[in-house]
Amino acid sequence: MKNKSMYIYGVIFAVLAVAPTFLNPYWVDVLNNVGLYAILGLSLNLIVGHAGLFNLGHAAFFAVGAYTAAILNTQFAIPVLWLLPVCALTAGLFAGIIARPIIHLRGDYLCIVTIGVGEILRIALTNDLFGITGGPNGIFGISRPTVFGYVIRRPHEFYYLIGAFLMVTIFLFHRLENSRFGRAVNYLREDETAAEGSGINTSHYKLAVFVLGAAWAGMAGDIFAAKMTIIAPESFNFWESVVMFAIVILGGSGSIPGVLLGAVLFVGLPEVFRDFADARMLIFGAAMVVMMIVRTEGILPQRPRTYALPEARNAGGAP
């Protein structure tokens, strides 16, 4: 079983690695968007999928990262890729300050507060907060990223940048899932009271996971800013948060392959439906309902952790 899935992933990885050689720039750019949303989805998956916190304002942290990169790059000419840790820091800090007083709210109340934070931030950016966000025009003229003196400009070049970042993300988050931290967070999602009873400091873990997810979205914001070279408040509206949220739930809450597939469906399907012109979103909405009904837990849900029984281990064969 394990070997078979590794085999499948290996084939997918190999095909994706050479994809730009046989796809035209448009489809490569679609894949770039898929990759970007996969990173965002994975970062939100920590918060929604693993910790069970109902966050419908993730675009806010994405925006903080993107604006940090844009402002520092255009004002001080700092290369965008150097700004990755700075973007993570500002987005994480922002999330920490916001989440501190509200993290104890129950499910749907937390949901509206995160929506509210996202909207307040968007309105603040539109109203040119502190005179540095450029108002509704946003910020333009963000420089392209360079790797060892090589300027990344075209879709297939971004493809490998985003791909590399996605690979790192998958690797780290996979490690995190199986760590003590990951187990504790899953526990508090399943039963907060019991988790607290077992000595898990629930608000500490909730806050930590929130900040981590936000910081990762901030780094995705940096790449987004570098890719678009122009950012405006409208790119971070409520709809973006909805898309990220739906990617996580539709793909399979808490599962890395699920979220990746969710990103493929969510970014890819509207593109596939382009030939339906103005009916494309209608079909997309219907597809969302149908997929959710057919796979109520998401397409590739998180598999419950299994531990081999001591006897089985002695016998030398795991099921």
């Binding site: 929604v48 109902f54 499910g107 909805v242 949220f245 739906a246 739930i249 539709l250 809450s253 009916a279 979103m281 209608l282 997309f284 909405g285 219907a286 597809a287 969302m288 309902v289 959710m292 009904i293 109520t296 837990e297 998401g298």
Partner: peptide, 19 residues
């Protein structure tokens, strides 16, 4: 099914009706 799944279905229904 999980509560959040129904939320996504609701969002899909919303997109469908609006369009």
């Amino acid at each position: 099914s999980p509560r959040l799944s129904a939320v996504v279905s609701a969002l899909g229904a919303s997109i469908f009706l609006q369009n």
